[in-house]
Simulated scan of single mutants.
Amino acid sequence: MSVIESVAEACKELKLSRNIVDNMQKIQEEDRYKFLLQLFQLEIQHRADNRRQRNIKSAGFYNMKSFSDYVYDDLELPSGLSISDIESAEFVRRKENLILYGNSGTGKSHLATAIGIKACMEDMRVGFYRTAGLVNKLLEARQQGALDKLFRKLSKLDLIICDEWGYVPLDMVGGQLLFQVISECYETKSLIITTNLEFSKWVNIFYNQEMTAAMIDRLVHLAPARGW
């Protein structure tokens, strides 16, 4: 057995990446300590890249979008929030919310997706949902007795994106479950909501004035921006 094959076997036994074998043949360094350091650094980078790709895959984005082709001309930002804050996803680390409000076709979903992908690349865990789809998941989990499991999954996320908020009216139970999601996110993670409905019309989605007011209060308390 060659040295390369022996290293491959050792990596398998130690549950290390086969990438180590590939990289050790690429490194041009005679000093054994520097060689080992470079090997470790390449493996760390490899694992980080894989983790980012897993984050993106598990997030559930419907399309891949970036900031490079996004036009900010019609986006109105409040004082204290900059385009840099948005593109760095720094507000997600601060556990702040972002409410993107505007007419259909103004790029709300594009921007939300681009932020979500950036968060994934920054080693944050993201869930992207069409709001009606998330409510359906909640209702199905409730029916199957798996609601706690779904809430535990959601609790592990750093950012939840609710796209197309208010496009489909919810029944009372669905609204209550969505309210529970929002409540459990309060000050523990970030939310991004895209909607074409102003706050005054949200009661038409949830049918309960008190619950709607409480939900808006939780959202806007840590929401730095509304656009368009």
Rank of each mutant, 00 (worst) to 15 (best):
H46D: 15
S58L: 12
D49A: 15
E30I: 10
A119N: 07
F40L: 14
H46Y: 15
G80A: 08
Y33P: 01
E87I: 12
S58Y: 07
S68H: 01
K95A: 09
A48H: 13
C120H: 05
K57T: 13
K34M: 10
L36S: 07
S104G: 05
S79P: 11
S79R: 05
R93M: 14
E30P: 12
L81S: 14
I115N: 00
E30G: 06
G127M: 07
H46N: 12
D69M: 00
M124D: 08
G107P: 05
R51G: 10
Q41E: 15
G107T: 03
D31W: 04
L98G: 12
I115G: 01
I56T: 04
M121V: 04
K118Y: 00
E30W: 08
D31H: 10
S66E: 06
F91T: 06
F128R: 00
G105S: 05
G105D: 05
L42Q: 12
D85T: 10
R93T: 13
Q38D: 04
L39D: 02
N97R: 07
I44W: 04
G107L: 04
Y129V: 12
M121T: 14
A112Y: 01
F40Y: 11
L98T: 08
Y129P: 07
E29Q: 08
F128N: 10
M124K: 06
S109Q: 00
E43S: 15
S82P: 13
R51Y: 15
D69N: 13
L98R: 02
R47F: 13
D49N: 15
L75G: 02
A112W: 00
I27V: 13
Y70Q: 02
S66Q: 01
I115F: 09
R125K: 15
G80K: 06
L37K: 13
Y101W: 12
A59F: 03
G60P: 00
K57R: 11
E76R: 07
V126I: 12
Y33K: 11
Y70W: 00
F128L: 06
Y129D: 04
L36V: 05
Y72V: 04
L77S: 06
K118G: 00
S68D: 10
F67Y: 03
Q38H: 09
S79L: 14
E96R: 08
K34N: 11
I27T: 09
R51S: 15
K34R: 11
S82R: 09
E43G: 07
Y72D: 08
M121W: 08
L36C: 14
H110Q: 01
Q28E: 15
L42I: 09
G107F: 04
Y33D: 11
F67Q: 01
E76I: 13
Y62D: 08
P78Q: 13
M64K: 02
D123A: 03
F67E: 01
I99Q: 09
E96W: 09
G60Q: 00
H110C: 00
D73W: 06
C120L: 04
S109K: 03
E122R: 09
